[in-house]
Each structure stands twice: as structure tokens, then as C-alpha cells.
Design a protein around this nucleic acid. Structure first.
Length: 561
RNA sequence: GGCCCGGUGGUCAAGCGGCUAAGACACCGCCCUUUCACGGCGGUAACACGGGUUCGAUUCCCGUCCGGGUCACCA
């Protein structure tokens, strides 16, 4: 067969050669050891936690080595593309510290534009480039046109569509597909011409020369040595619309754009044989690969599953909505990515995570379960170290978007809000009440009449005692009292009611008392805050003010006739 | 089912032939304490199983089991 003629017949409009294209993509002039990495999402929706993971690795590796980190939009599937997704992706990534040196960026008008000399960075704009390389492969007899339609293929695949797939079905399908594939390989120039003349669409398939009996050895930077059978599947290079599949685009683009390290999710591991073969066919140097372990979730049966779009915590917008600060999420990601991050962080509390020496060797090879407990802990530590002012600023921003009522309360009296947020903050051992901005209202809402309600039960004592406590408190309460005086009065109430005012005495002999001063405090606390769990009561009363404090307690007494 | 990856406490994980098998989160207890927290101290809890190799296996090899991923003109 005259492959040259075939190539011309298939791609008459392609006049450039691969060498012409290569000339437009000179090698990058980068210092020794600089890594060129990329994030290459398909614009099909929001940013996924599973996407933030590898992109963080790629960003760190590039910037830590003085290399280049670029964004490539893999919009090769028009059917799945979502309007505006690329813009959203870029914005979201930026809030998590993922900034690109090159590639698809947002211009002044907020539209996706190219920056850098290795573009275009949108694959849909690169059709002729891929076709040039496809034409070359056809010319060399390494790829061929296939006129089998999707419908015909679907029929072959019916077995595959069933829910329950039996062993024999798999084998039958594999055999029939294989037979079909072999059949597609043989054709004559006349047949091709007829199809073309009739305007039939075609795809370009690779002519796989792999022997599945033979193994390819390969080293993944995180997985280590891997062995897999050579590829013998004639997978599609160019779809019938002339746009490449992921595999082909990956090979052509990462070669042309000078990617040194391909960082992607572990789910790509099985297609590695295809890529190895493709790079070899194309005469490209294989980049280094890092396949990152997946984030999992627990399904209803208690099994681990890959975190998917629908899951809570998959969409990065969820974190914004829940009120997690990006710093917390980033730091949590770091703890998952590098096992020694926490150790480093403990010693470098004031340094941003970007100063952490990220280490490929410390990356986990197995997947991990998403753990909200851990995220919350990381987050609490971060928020506890912020100033009251800082918390106020960020909290109001969040609240104005997700809880306008609360935002209004906050901003109507900034001074008070900051006072509230100052409680237990700033010292060596700050309180850790807030993991998210959404935690703020339950924590401090009671300061505002609008959000005040008796939420918790009083401790289990006779109502008479509780009522007596509240009455006695009102009799002696003086807003001007110093904390110690105020406290002594509470102790006096405890003594007068047969409660221990001294915790040690109580501990030594609990039977001798009805309860202790902690119980007495709890009565007052619930009356004033509606909760058993609220910060320092004295300070709370100082902020709320005498009038309101008395009013709340009186109101409680009235309910206890 | 084929292929690939993985398997240390509930979770994330140190470990890389000899250790009382780290640490963090969660949980529990004690201490501190007017409450709630914070903090301090302590505790429960793990090398999936079976064969090898070795003087000695969590560590190396093989098998089994379990978990995950993947098998498209989706990425």
C-alpha cells in the first residue's frame, strides 16, 4: 500500500510537516533541574478536590524548581464542555494558590486567553497540529483510517453495557472486538476513496504493534517500578471531527510544550502502555510520570470509592459554602500529599506552606479517605491564630454571601463583633471554637437578641435550685464588679445553696454537697447564653451589658414559677 | 473477567532485615479550671492470611484474600 498517497488522500489540507511544527516549539531555555509541569483539565464543570490534588503537586514541583507551570484546556470533547467552565476553573484554582506562569489565563475582560510561546493552550484550537502528526503516522504506516461508525461499534459493545458482566461475556466481547479490529486494518485504497467520496466520516487509529505477551518496564516517580503488557489495541488517535483523543493530544502537546513531568491521577496508569507506544511511534522523548493516589470516600456499604463529582467535598465551591478558608484546605492537602508536612509545619508555624520543601519521595502510594475531622483540626488551628480583626473581615465576607442576616448583625456593630471574637484569642493557647465561618453563628449568635434562644437544657437539678440561683445572682449582680468580686459572689451563692464553692473540697467529698460551683455557673450561663457551651461568662456579660443580662435572667425566672 | 495499583490502629501515616512498631486526627480517662474551651499528662487500638528466603521478617520473594482503578470517537 502506498501510505504516502493514503496520507495525502486523508489529509489533503495539511501541508506542514512535523518538522515545520517542531520549529515553532523550540526547547525551553531553563536552568538545570527546572521542572515544567502542567494542569490539563477538561472544562466540563467545577474544580474537583481530586483535581486540586495533582495540580498542587504540579504547581509546587514547578515553582520549587524554578520551572514553569502552565494550564492547558483539554476541550477535545465538545459534547461534554460546559460554558464558562474554564473561567471558573481558573478562578477557583487561584483562590487555592494555584497560579499559572503560562497557558490559558484570564484577560482583563475575564475571558480565557493565551499567555506564552507554546500555545495555543486550548486543544480545540490545535486541530491542524495534531493532524500534521497524524498524517505523518499514516505516512509511516503506523496509523490508519477507520470508517466503522460509532453505532456499529456500540453493537459490538452491548455486552459491556450490562450491569452484571459475566466472565464469558467479557471474553466473548474481547474476542469479537479484537476480530473486528483486525478486520478494520485491511482495506484497499479504492475502498478508502469510495468512503471519502461518499463523505463518510472516519477516525484515525494507531496500528498497534505491541505483543501483549511481552512486558514493558517503566518507572513512575511515585509508584516506582511498574510492568505492563505492550499495547496491542488500535485505539483512536483522531476522532471523526478531526480532534484528537486524550492519548494523542497528551503525546503531541506535552512533547511540543516541553513538559518534563506529567502529574496526573492514578486512574491514568492503565493507559500508560498506549502512551509509551505513542511517544515511541512519534519519536518523542517520554516525560517523567507521576501518578497520584486517589482521594476516596466511604460509600453506603462502607467501601471506599473514588471521590466523585456528586460527593460532599468534591466540588471546591462546597468548601467556600461551608466556610473553610482556602489556607486550611491547602494545608490539609499538604498533609495528605507529604507525610512529613505536619512535622515541618509544627516547627515553622509562621511560614506559609509554600516554603515547605515538597518531596516526591514522601508521597503516598496508596489512596486515602477524605477526613473532615482532620480538615477541621487543621482549620481550627489556622483560625485560632488569626487576629480578631482578621477573623471579622473574613467572617463578614463569608456571611454576606451565605448568611446575610448574620452579616448584618455583625456589621451593625463592628466594635462589639470584634470584642466577641477577641475572647480567648491572642494568647499562647488560643481557643479553637471555629473550624469554619459557618461555625461562627452557633458559637456567638447568642450575643445578638435576634439569634438568641435557650438551646441547651439546664443541668439536671431541681428547678427550685436553678430559680433560686438566678434570683440570688440578680440580687447581688453589679456590672461594675471586677471579675474576682463577681466570681466571689457566685461562690457565695453556691455556699448558700449547699453547693461546693471549692472544687477541691467537692472532689474530696462529693456527697457532702448538692453540687459544685460549676453547676451554679452553668445555671447562669444557660440563662444568659442559652447554651452550656459558651466562652468566659464574665466577659460575655460585660459585652452583652447589664440591662440585657438582667433581662435574660429575669425572663428565665418568669418561666419557672 | 483481563490488566494495573495498593493492603501498618477508626482515619492519615512513620518504618525501609533485629524497634517496648513513631507521630497527627478522632475516641476515652485524669489534671488544670467558676462554665465552655485551650493546654498538660495518660489510655484503648495496627503490621490481612499462608508459604518460602534468612540466625532473624512489618520490612525481601511467591500465592491467597481483600480494597481500589481501568478496559469509549470521555478525559
Amino acid at each position: 500500500m502506498d501510505f504516502n498517497a493514503l496520507a495525502e488522500m486523508l489529509f489533503p489540507h495539511i501541508t506542514e510537516t512535523p518538522a515545520d511544527v517542531e520549529a515553532k516549539y523550540p526547547p525551553r531555555n531553563l536552568p538545570e533541574g527546572a521542572k515544567v509541569t502542567r494542569f490539563a483539565p477538561s472544562p466540563t464543570g467545577f474544580v474537583h478536590f481530586g483535581g486540586l490534588f495533582p495540580s498542587t503537586v504540579a504547581e509546587r514541583l514547578a515553582h520549587q524548581s524554578g520551572g514553569v507551570f502552565y494550564l492547558r484546556i483539554e476541550d477535545t470533547d465538545a459534547k461534554r464542555e460546559v460554558e464558562g467552565a474554564a473561567e471558573g476553573l481558573i478562578k477557583t484554582l487561584a483562590t487555592y494558590g494555584i497560579n499559572f506562569d503560562e497557558g490559558a489565563i484570564l484577560d482583563e475582560s475575564g475571558k480565557v486567553a493565551d499567555k506564552g510561546a507554546y500555545g495555543p493552550y486550548k486543544q480545540s484550537m490545535r486541530g491542524p497540529i495534531y493532524q500534521t502528526f497524524a498524517k505523518q503516522l499514516v505516512r509511516e504506516g503506523k496509523a490508519y483510517p477507520c470508517f466503522t461508525t460509532e453505532e456499529e461499534l456500540d453493537e459490538l459493545q452491548q455486552v459491556n453495557k450490562k450491569e452484571e458482566i459475566k466472565n464469558t461475556d467479557w471474553q466473548a466481547e474481547a474476542e469479537s472486538r479484537r476480530a473486528e479490529m483486525l478486520a478494520r486494518r485491511s482495506f484497499t485504497m479504492e475502498e478508502v476513496k469510495e468512503h471519502l467520496d461518499a463523505g463518510h466520516p472516519f477516525v484515525v487509529r494507531i496500528l498497534a504493534n505491541g505483543d501483549p505477551e511481552k512486558k514493558v518496564k517503566f518507572t513512575d516517580l511515585v509508584k516506582g517500578a511498574i510492568e505492563f503488557p505492550e499495547n496491542d489495541e488500535d485505539f483512536v488517535l483522531l476522532k471523526s471531527d478531526g480532534i484528537p483523543t486524550y492519548h494523542f493530544a497528551h503525546a503531541v502537546d506535552d512533547h511540543l510544550m516541553g513538559t518534563t513531568h506529567v502529574i496526573r491521577g492514578e486512574e491514568w496508569l492503565p493507559s500508560l502502555p498506549k502512551h509509551v507506544q505513542l511517544f515511541s511511534y512519534l519519536g518523542f522523548k517520554l516525560p517523567k510520570y507521576m501518578h497520584i493516589a486517589q482521594i476516596m470516600r466511604l460509600d453506603e456499604n462502607g467501601n471506599k470509592k473514588k471521590l466523585s463529582k456528586r460527593d460532599m467535598g468534591a466540588n471546591m465551591d462546597d468548601y467556600t459554602r461551608m466556610g473553610y478558608s482556602p489556607e486550611a484546605v491547602c494545608e490539609y492537602v499538604m498533609t495528605l500529599l507529604n507525610s512529613n508536612y505536619e512535622e515541618w509545619h509544627a516547627k515553622n508555624l509562621d511560614k506559609p506552606y509554600t516554603e515547605f520543601p515538597f518531596n516526591i519521595k514522601k508521597m503516598s502510594v496508596s489512596g486515602c479517605l477524605f477526613d473532615f475531622n482532620k480538615l477541621n483540626d487543621v482549620s481550627k488551628n489556622i483560625l485560632s491564630r488569626m487576629t480578631a480583626e482578621g477573623v471579622y473581615e473574613k467572617l463578614t465576607v463569608w456571611a454576606s454571601a451565605f448568611d446575610p442576616d448574620f452579616a448584618e448583625a455583625l456589621t451593625s456593630d463592628k466594635e462589639m463583633a470584634v470584642k466577641i471574637l477577641s475572647i480567648g484569642r491572642g494568647g499562647k493557647k488560643p481557643r479553637k471554637d471555629l473550624a469554619t465561618w459557618a461555625d461562627a453563628k452557633p458559637y456567638m449568635g447568642f450575643f445578638y437578641d435576634k439569634f438568641f434562644a435557650i438551646e441547651d437544657e439546664y443541668p439536671a437539678f431541681d428547678q427550685d435550685i436553678i430559680k433560686a440561683t438566678l434570683e440570688k445572682f440578680l440580687e447581688t449582680y453589679n456590672y461594675a464588679d471586677e471579675m474576682n468580686v463577681w466570681f466571689d459572689k457566685i461562690k457565695a451563692i453556691a455556699d448558700s445553696l449547699g453547693f461546693a464553692s471549692d472544687m477541691k473540697a467537692y472532689k474530696a467529698n462529693p456527697e457532702a454537697f448538692k453540687g459544685n460551683v460549676a453547676d451554679i455557673s452553668a445555671f447562669i450561663r444557660v440563662a444568659v447564653t442559652g447554651k452550656q457551651n459558651a466562652p468566659d461568662l464574665y466577659t460575655v456579660m460585660q459585652i452583652i451589658g447589664e440591662e440585657k443580662t438582667r433581662a435574660r435572667i429575669s425572663a428565665q425566672i418568669d418561666t419557672m414559677k
